[in-house]
Amino acid sequence: MSNSKRQLFQKRRMRVRNKLRKLAGGRPRLSVHRSSKNISVQLIDDVQGRTLASASTLEAALGLKGKNNVEAAAKVGSEIAARAKAAGVEEVYFDRGGFLFHGKVKALADAAREGGLKF
């Protein structure tokens, strides 16, 4: 019985999230979503069940609408770091979802670290 590509992605995503949840220690989750045209990231407090901050290439203020490359990911990463600082968050855990930690996801994480987030 073969699994579809979507089912395999969901399985990988939940495996990553469940492993990270055990190590979270009350820190918010920095969740990344990458589509073919955009990249977005949210800072989520799982205890209260609310989003503390978010950034995306869909925002007109960033001037990256419809761009999904390494440079756009880095800009989104630095923006989420600034918004997290404004929300009073310095330590998070990085939830890459089912995406590989490579390319755009890695660029976003590195820019967020340079912006002052610790994970």
Score class of each variant (00 low, 15 high):
13 R>G: 01
45 D>N: 06
99 F>M: 14
18 N>A: 12
73 A>P: 03
7 Q>S: 13
26 G>C: 04
33 H>N: 03
23 L>P: 00
26 G>K: 14
27 R>L: 11
5 K>D: 08
9 F>Q: 15
111 A>D: 06
46 D>W: 12
34 R>N: 06
107 A>D: 10
69 N>I: 15
40 S>D: 07
61 A>D: 13
73 A>D: 15
63 G>K: 06
71 E>T: 11
5 K>G: 04
57 T>V: 09
15 R>K: 02
37 K>A: 09
56 S>N: 12
11 K>Q: 10
39 I>M: 12
1 M>R: 09
1 M>T: 11
102 H>G: 00
57 T>Y: 07
12 R>V: 01
41 V>H: 01
43 L>K: 00
102 H>K: 00
93 Y>I: 15
81 A>G: 10
19 K>G: 11
64 L>V: 15
6 R>M: 13
93 Y>R: 05
54 S>Q: 13
87 A>I: 14
76 V>H: 04
82 A>R: 10
5 K>A: 06
1 M>Y: 11
86 A>L: 13
62 L>Q: 03
81 A>Y: 11
85 K>E: 09
27 R>P: 14
38 N>C: 02
67 K>A: 04
17 R>Y: 07
12 R>Q: 14
6 R>S: 10
70 V>E: 08
76 V>Y: 12
28 P>K: 00
17 R>E: 08
30 L>G: 00
24 A>I: 04
19 K>S: 05
2 S>A: 15
63 G>N: 05
57 T>W: 08
25 G>P: 05
83 R>Y: 12
72 A>Q: 12
71 E>Y: 08
52 L>D: 02
117 L>D: 06
19 K>M: 12
79 E>R: 01
55 A>E: 12
97 G>W: 12
77 G>N: 01
45 D>S: 05
3 N>H: 14
90 E>Y: 13
14 M>N: 03
25 G>I: 00
24 A>C: 04
9 F>C: 03
80 I>H: 01
58 L>H: 05
49 G>T: 03
90 E>P: 01
90 E>G: 03
38 N>H: 11
23 L>I: 00
39 I>T: 09
89 V>Y: 05
22 K>V: 03
85 K>F: 04
80 I>A: 01
44 I>F: 14
45 D>G: 02
96 R>P: 06
49 G>F: 11
90 E>T: 05
18 N>E: 12
111 A>I: 00
48 Q>K: 15
29 R>C: 13
72 A>G: 07
2 S>N: 08
103 G>F: 13
23 L>M: 02
50 R>G: 00
72 A>E: 10
66 G>T: 04
102 H>R: 00
27 R>T: 08
31 S>R: 01
107 A>P: 03
1 M>V: 05
116 G>I: 08
6 R>I: 12
89 V>M: 07
93 Y>H: 11
69 N>V: 09
24 A>D: 15
53 A>I: 11
80 I>P: 04
85 K>L: 13
108 L>W: 00
7 Q>C: 10
106 K>L: 14
84 A>K: 00
104 K>I: 03
50 R>F: 14
78 S>H: 05
117 L>W: 08
10 Q>V: 12
58 L>S: 10
20 L>R: 02
